[in-house]
Amino acid sequence: MNNIWIITRRELATFFNSLMAYIMIIAFLGFSGFFTWFLGSDIFFIKQASLGSFFNIAFWTLFFFIPGLTMRLFAEETRSGTIEVLLTKPVSDWQVVLGKFLSTLILIIIALLMTFPYYITVASLGNIDHGAVWSGYLGLILMSAGYISIGLFTSSISNNQIVGYLLALFIGIFFQIIFSFVAIYMSGFVGEIFNFLSVPTHIESISRGVIDSRDLIFFLSLIFFGLILTEANLEKSRL
């Protein structure tokens, strides 16, 4: 446990020292703020005291930003060879994977915390459904965790960061839209499966304020599979 935290701290420090973190936070706030308050179906347009428009836009910004944060995590270490030095320290592969996972998740949570002024502003404008806001945030965090684990996996495949980024987007797009499209055209059991695999299904259900065990199971297994594949990739490099 202690080792995981040591690795998490180092990765976070790297995020902040390399400007990555600031760029990510500023761009995220800029995008989501612009579309929440000024353009498209923004809060004033829909005339409801709800953060729905923010959650919709964050859903897409996070989808594109997360692979940018994770692409470096393993690719750079395998390219420079530091992974070898790290794995000869008394840490297990799992501790390394979890440390890197947590560091990115914490960064995302920091970015989300910075959108709290939106919440406060909207709450002062009208009668906001507090439960829906909290569950909306929870949905975003769960979704981010899922995409982080996919990003970690693709970063561990190749030592080229761009390959890691594009591959994460490629895998992610299936969960993000393709599965829900397929689900529309499939009926019965197969349709159910694709519906279950689609991220928007679960985000919608969570953002209604109902946290179903099905949604939790989906996100937790997505995270779990991503991480287990990452660990398997690390293991493979030493055979």
């Binding site: 180092r10 420090a13 790297t14 020292n17 390399s18 420079s80 060879g81 530091t82 070898e84 030095v85 000869t88 320290k89 008394p90």
Partner: peptide, 18 residues
């Protein structure tokens, strides 16, 4: 074993930004 070994790798990879 790892606790008892000190290792210097061939091209000495280090975190350059640290």
């Amino acid at each position: 074993i790892k606790r008892h070994i000190g290792y210097l790798s061939e091209n000495n990879p280090l975190y350059s930004e640290m």
